[in-house]
């Protein structure tokens, strides 16, 4: 088998695993398990990005998707006491129909898209050749992704950092000023619970 065949085989295996994990997330009622599966999903996506030669994106996905967001989700789970409410699995027709139709339309639309990695794809012939030609002359860093993100598109990256800054400030203001009333109220409800049953 050639390298291309192996790559296709690995792609199929990874996408199959993604499908399995997705159905696991849909079926599982245990939120802890869902958070773990979401972390696994991110790691699988990181591998898919690596196969697509998008190493920087894969790196970010592994660090943010599988690492930090898993920890933050677990922190949220600890706060909301997820064992209390068990929502049983119900089959719902409308969401399934919406998902199937959307998926079908996307698959139909994909017919017009250029092949993955095709050299004559519109995104490869627009500004990409300029970046590839000019980066050694203008900026001279080996990683063109860094050159684009930090220099050519520096203003966009400044905006992204501002978004992260705003998110941090928002969490800080929301969580540090809000009074903690949930704990007492929840405890009271626990105490009332058995009395109601009796």
């Amino acid at each position: 088998m050639s390298i291309g065949d192996w790559e296709a085989l690995i792609n199929v295996a990874l996408l199959g695993l993604l499908l399995v994990v997705t159905f696991g997330i849909i079926r599982l009622r245990n939120l802890f398990g869902v958070v773990m599966l979401a972390g696994i999903y991110s790691l699988l996506m990181a591998m898919v990005f690596t196969l697509l030669d998008a190493v920087d994106v894969a790196f970010t996905e592994a660090a943010v998707g599988a690492g930090v967001s898993t920890i933050l989700s677990l922190g949220t789970l600890a706060l909301i006491d997820s064992r209390r409410e068990k929502i049983p699995f119900r089959f719902q027709f409308t969401p399934l129909l919406v998902a199937l139709v959307t998926g079908g339309v996307l698959l139909w639309g994909m017919q017009d898209m250029p092949a993955v990695g095709a050299a004559d794809a519109p995104n490869q012939v627009h500004v990409a050749p300029y970046y590839i030609q000019q980066t050694p002359v203008d900026i001279d860093v080996p990683n063109i992704v860094t050159a684009v993100l930090a220099s050519y598109r520096g203003f966009d990256t400044l905006g992204e950092v501002t978004v992260i800054f705003t998110a941090g400030i928002g969490v800080m203001m929301l969580l540090s000023s809000m009074p903690v009333i949930g704990a007492r109220r929840r405890r009271r409800r626990d105490d009332d619970g058995p009395e109601d049953d009796a």
């Binding site: 860093v141 990683n143 993100l149 930090a150």
Partner: peptide
């Protein structure tokens, strides 16, 4: 500048 990575990944 030389390999994959940068400020965002490093910060995380």
């Amino acid at each position: 500048d030389f390999g994959p990575g940068g400020g965002f990944q490093a910060g995380v």
